[in-house]
Amino acid sequence: MVSVGNEHRLDARGLLCPMPVIRTQERVATLQPGDTLEVVCTDPGALHDIPAWCRVHGHEVTATRREGTVITITVRVAGT
């Protein structure tokens, strides 16, 4: 089942890890289950840290895109 939630965007460009993860965590805390958050960042460390953070909290990474130095990671917020 695919639940359709609201789409949100977080600009974490220029931040170094663990700041992109911290900003993602803060933002996800304000979202509803099923919502998606597109995190845009430039630190390659986020490619490891954001999925790891999602795994320990049960959220899902639905897409990862890399265009030049810009990385976009899409997170679907888990139910509580």
Binding site: P18, V21, G45
Partner: peptide
């Protein structure tokens, strides 16, 4: 590997981690 060790620890333990 460029890992965040606190997150790695949380995964090993199967617990949530709040940064």
């Amino acid at each position: 590997p460029k890992r965040n060790n606190a997150l790695w620890v949380a995964e090993q333990l199967g617990i949530k981690l709040h940064i």
